[in-house]
Write a protein that binds this DNA or RNA. Structure first.
Lengths: 239, 239
DNA sequence: CAGCGTAACGGCACTCAGTGCCGCTAGCAA
DNA sequence: TTGCTAGCGGCACTGAGTGCCGTTACGCTG
């Protein structure tokens, strides 16, 4: 469709790192075009390799699996997120930081709208690709959870692990919801604004309930496993 | 190991529905034993079929894929969840209902601890199986989200879809967190109690907005189980 | 009890994803 | 030019998943 190179880039491309990235892009581009035109199952790895002008064996030197070609830039995004976390102001609300970091995913989707739309059409249609995408999301959700857990533990939260996992899942879900809605409308409208609204709901949910309204006074008899009971009450109050 | 039938169940088993379920179980059991003994990759579908005394082709009549055999009862759980939702009291907090429904997953894991532990060891080790499990979780997370969305829309919530997706993700994350922790300790301790505590965190976070200040005085004896403390406080805060 | 139709089963053959191996050669350095 | 390195293509192989078909056990009916 666009500029699918039906004939080879002559010779040895991957000798230099720049050449490697170039061929990776060419393979990914050829694959997406073929998937969109003929369908995912109907397209063989041979077809993709031939369209990019390389041998089938070379494809598997650039991608571990056929479906990996659709999520080629995922590793870079995860790396960017880790950098974001490393450079984040420790004073900020951890959930806010995590929301900002996950915004990088939105950016990368918006950066290549054509790819995003074609991939979206595929993940909606092909079950195995849907599963692959879910697994991809889970991977950066884990990165989120790891960051949040570290921050919560710094705050002395006894349930840091649980809270982190739940918050990370909520953030990822909000992000995906915004993303899918945006893709369903063909990539029109301001995603970042919609995302900010959605993240506000999450940030709000994981702060003190109803502002700082609710109060719990627990009167306990005797002094037994008091520290444990206090921990539970603190959980309700959102320590 | 246990009772791996190295020789066939003589003849035609799947003629009756009961026979079909029996062979399904036999195949799943044989598969798990082989996976645990020899590893997932090293075990071929031929091996599984032979261990169950049937042909390779028959295996694929009972399971769509090799990895499906590990999540054999998943469809039943989803069906049970749907029933739970259909029979749920509309007056109850939707998130509470969803938490109760997802508890069915915990029940099914607890019902066959041996299988659960072996599967857990595999999903921790084999990447493709981890992805498969994530996809499985996503499937019932969608069921949760669908229920919640319907309820929220009844309540006239304009952001029903988003809230439902986020809450469903949070519930699933809490459930998984509890489940994994429990499995990591070999299935000891009271999961249901731990789950109730974890769900309390989620229910509290996603309580309907517009809550006014509340003061709760809880007088409890030291003999009261912790999860009941949480449950009662939560009741008062919501009622 | 005997015959009949249905459907489960096994087996064969095929496609394709993914992998190990090897020989070739383009590119770089001495 | 010569030698070394590494990207590449191709070959061959394993194993998952599928379509097809002949066989036969089983349930049902006369």
């Amino acid at each position: 469709m666009t500029d699918s190179p039906r004939r080879a880039p002559a010779t040895r491309v991957g000798a230099t790192p720049a050449g490697r990235r170039q061929l990776r892009r060419a393979l990914a581009s050829a694959a997406v075009d073929l998937f969109a035109a003929d369908g995912y199952e109907a397209t063989t790895v041979d077809d993709i390799a031939a369209a990019a002008g390389v041998g089938r064996r070379t494809f598997f030197r650039y991608f571990d699996a056929k479906d990996d070609v659709l999520f080629a830039n995922h590793d870079e995004i995860v790396a960017e997120m880790e950098e974001e976390f490393a450079a984040a102001d420790p004073a900020r609300d951890p959930v806010e930081v995590a929301c900002a970091a996950v915004g990088l995913v939105l950016d990368s989707y918006a950066a290549d709208l054509d790819l995003s739309l074609k991939r979206f059409a595929l993940t909606r249609t092909v079950p195995s690709l849907r599963d692959k995408e879910v697994a991809t999301v889970d991977r950066y959700q884990r990165v989120l959870a790891r960051y949040l857990q570290a921050r919560y533990e710094e705050q002395g939260d006894a349930t840091a692990s649980l809270r982190a996992a739940v918050a990370a899942a909520a953030i990822a879900a909000a992000n995906n919801h915004v993303l899918r809605r945006w893709l369903r409308t063909g990539g029109t409208g301001d995603i970042k604004a919609t995302a900010t609204e959605a993240f506000a709901l999450v940030i709000d949910a994981f702060r003190a309930p109803g502002g700082e309204a609710a109060t719990v006074v627990a009167v306990l008899t005797t002094a037994t496993p008091l520290h444990e009971v206090v921990a539970r009450v603190g959980e309700v109050l959102r320590g």
